[in-house]
Design a protein around this nucleic acid. Structure first.
Lengths: 218, 218
DNA sequence: GCACAAGCGGAGACTTGTTCTCCACTTCTT
DNA sequence: AAGAAGTGGAGAACAAGTCTCCGCTTGTGC
């Protein structure tokens, strides 16, 4: 474990960056489950180097996601900045799922496999009031059904996340179809729902999707 | 591997049943991932016995789920027997998710982790026309939105399945809330949606749910 | 340039968790 | 009572990960 803050030698610093970059790419594409060995290989350095630099996979994850907390909170703030309360809700859901679809690792950090961890509670605490505000505003404007609650948010993420996981490689963006469906269910009053945007997958694609569906761990 | 069909000795037959029963219980509660060793332990017999009787975990799974295909198809037929096309759709969704919630192993077989397998295609082929009929009937009656398709069905199962997995131990039946939401999104015309039936989880429960959420395998 | 602390690579020890084998022993069956 | 059938469970074989160790290499300061 590296503790001192004496500056690293130039080559060591370069390797640190290579590792961080490799980790970011691998976490994004395969989730937090990737081994430090895999990351080291991708970075083109030995495993030993990876362990000397970060001590453990956990520490590397912390180093990586530290910087991204703000990015996520930013999406909520951006959504809140919109005039129209419904558009705010919609854009928040859309952008946060898109972020999750683009980065499996981030999704796993946010949904909190391992909720005890500080990195999770930090994000969650920052998020809660913002999400609350988005919801309340939409409900006061009468566009979001009154029996909906901010606690429902993570479940929407979960549901759409499961579609992302299953279908992203076969029909990327299919999740938007089900987001549209959910939004129609969440809408109170207002105009008739628009058409379900991405069309459904065809039977062949469906077979492919199900062929690589995997049950959740444990 | 047991191939001959000469009748088993009485004690061997009894052990076979014990194993099947133990497997059924364990698959239901923990999914297809349980090891044959675990099953043998639960059954109160040695591992050797389990392997002599079934040859492999796969063979045991086949033996077990063989008999349940009909049970699942039965749900669809039962739903189709209903007068009201919307009630048929609703009850089919409800009963099939309830079945999945009660039996993780069955869910994994149906959603097809391992779609190449014969047991899956059998169910799927039997299911397709029935689901198609339920959908078409609801659409012709003008109660199901026209841009919905039978291929959407497995994704509904997936989405609700992810809620089941995450929340069943903390807030059993919470999935009904999101089923109600989805149904409201799927409905065309007709009466205003009823209230979202189970209320949302509270913040404490949500923390518990997220604390044991696990990302999908691989 | 040279000395040497800092850093490196990656084989392999260790861990955990499976699947499956083997065979001395026990139990049914006739 | 004999012997065929069946049993249990230690442990071999494998898989996939985490992390250590140490001989060799390299950047840095003088």
């Amino acid at each position: 474990m590296q503790i001192t803050d004496r500056p690293l030698r130039a080559d060591a610093e370069r390797n640190r960056r290579l590792l961080l970059d490799a980790a970011r790419a691998l976490f994004a594409e395969r989730g937090l489950g990737v081994s430090l060995d895999d990351i080291a290989e991708r970075a083109g350095v030995g495993v030993g180097t990876a362990y000397r630099r970060f001590g453990s996979r956990e520490a590397l994850i912390d180093a990586l996601f530290e910087e991204r907390v703000e990015e996520v909170l930013g999406l909520a703030r951006e959504a809140l900045a919109r005039e129209d309360p419904w558009a705010a809700l919609k854009s928040f859901l859309e952008s946060s799922i898109a972020l999750q679809a683009a980065d499996r690792g981030l999704k796993e950090v946010l949904l909190g496999a391992d909720g005890r961890h500080a990195r999770v509670t930090r994000i969650r605490d920052g998020m809660r009031p913002l999400v609350g505000q988005i919801f309340v505003r939409a409900q006061e404007a009468g566009v979001l059904r009154a029996d909906f609650a901010p606690q429902d948010m993570p479940f929407l993420q979960m549901m759409l996340g499961s579609v992302v996981d299953a279908s992203e490689s076969v029909a990327p963006g299919l999740w938007r179809r089900y987001l549209a469906l959910l939004l129609d269910g969440m809408r109170a009053g207002g105009p008739a729902p628009g058409p379900l945007d991405p069309p459904p997958v065809d039977w062949g694609q469906l077979t492919d999707v199900l062929a690589c569906w995997r049950p959740p761990r444990r």
